Simulated scan of single mutants.
Amino acid sequence: MSMFARSFTRTPFRKTVQLLRGSGHAEGYNQPTGYLFGEKPLPAGAKRVKEDWESLFFYGFMGSMVLGTAVIYYKPDTNVHTWAYREAKARMEARGESVEYKKQE
């Protein structure tokens, strides 16, 4: 196959540099420090300073959880069995039949 035909049948998706290097990801690797989230323990009596995004994330996440719980709790019952029960009860009452079952002994 000629060089011209090969260029149309196989299109390279990565740059030549990426092909030579073997990956398209950024260089570097953070060595593990053994500390939780990479933060060193604070000296005694020092208070941790929050980053700007931490409060927004916490209150946004917890607020959405509370809102979601309220929406699920107060959503209308759209179950087909509930609808059928209410419809049958209304029809039985319209015909004058008793809706309650009496226990036979």
Results as ranks from 00 to 15, higher is better:
Met1Cys: 02
Met1Arg: 02
Ser2Glu: 08
Met3Arg: 13
Met3Gln: 15
Phe4Gln: 11
Phe4Thr: 07
Ala5Gly: 05
Ala5His: 11
Arg6Gly: 04
Ser7His: 05
Ser7Gly: 04
Phe8Tyr: 12
Thr9Phe: 14
Arg10His: 15
Arg10Leu: 06
Arg10Lys: 14
Thr11Ala: 12
Pro12Lys: 05
Phe13Tyr: 13
Arg14Lys: 09
Lys15Gln: 12
Lys15Asp: 15
Lys15Glu: 15
Thr16Pro: 09
Thr16Met: 14
Thr16Cys: 08
Val17Gln: 15
Gln18Tyr: 10
Gln18Pro: 00
Leu20Arg: 07
Leu20Cys: 07
Arg21Glu: 07
Arg21Pro: 01
Arg21Leu: 14
Ser23Arg: 07
Ser23Glu: 09
Ser23Asp: 14
Gly24Arg: 01
Gly24Asp: 13
Gly24Gln: 03
His25Gly: 05
His25Thr: 10
His25Met: 08
Glu27Arg: 03
Gly28Gln: 01
Gly28Ala: 02
Tyr29Leu: 12
Tyr29Trp: 15
Tyr29Lys: 09
Asn30Cys: 10
Asn30Asp: 15
Gln31Pro: 06
Thr33His: 05
Thr33Met: 07
Thr33Arg: 07
Thr33Asn: 10
Gly34Ser: 05
Gly34Gln: 05
Gly34Met: 03
Tyr35Thr: 00
Leu36Phe: 13
Leu36Thr: 06
Leu36Asp: 08
Phe37Cys: 09
Phe37Tyr: 13
Phe37Ser: 05
Gly38Trp: 07
Glu39Asp: 08
Glu39Ile: 00
Glu39Phe: 08
Pro41Glu: 08
Leu42Gly: 03
Pro43Asn: 10
Pro43Lys: 12
Lys47Ser: 05
Val49Met: 00
Lys50Asp: 10
Glu51Lys: 03
Asp52Cys: 04
Asp52Glu: 13
Glu54Gln: 09
Glu54Pro: 01
Glu54Arg: 01
Ser55Glu: 14
Leu56His: 11
Phe57Ala: 12
Phe58Ala: 00
Phe58Pro: 00
Tyr59Ala: 01
Gly60Phe: 03
Phe61Gln: 04
Phe61Val: 04
Phe61Asn: 04
Met62Asn: 02
Met62Trp: 08
Met62Arg: 00
Met62Ser: 08
Ser64Phe: 03
Met65Arg: 07
Val66Trp: 10
Leu67Val: 07
Ala70Cys: 11
Val71Ser: 01
Ile72Asp: 12
Ile72Thr: 11
Tyr74Leu: 11
Pro76Trp: 03
Asp77Trp: 02
Asp77Val: 02
Asp77Leu: 02
Thr78Asn: 10
Asn79Val: 00
Asn79Arg: 06
Val80Leu: 06
Ala84Leu: 13
Arg86Phe: 15
Arg86Lys: 15
Glu87Ala: 14
Glu87Ser: 12
Ala90Pro: 01
Met92Asp: 14
Glu93Ala: 13
Glu93Arg: 11
Ala94Gly: 03
Arg95Met: 09
Gly96Trp: 02
Glu97Ile: 03
Ser98Glu: 15
Ser98Leu: 14
Val99Trp: 12
Glu100Trp: 15
Lys102Gln: 15
Lys102Gly: 11
Gln104Ser: 11
Gln104Arg: 13
Gln104Cys: 03
Glu105Asp: 10
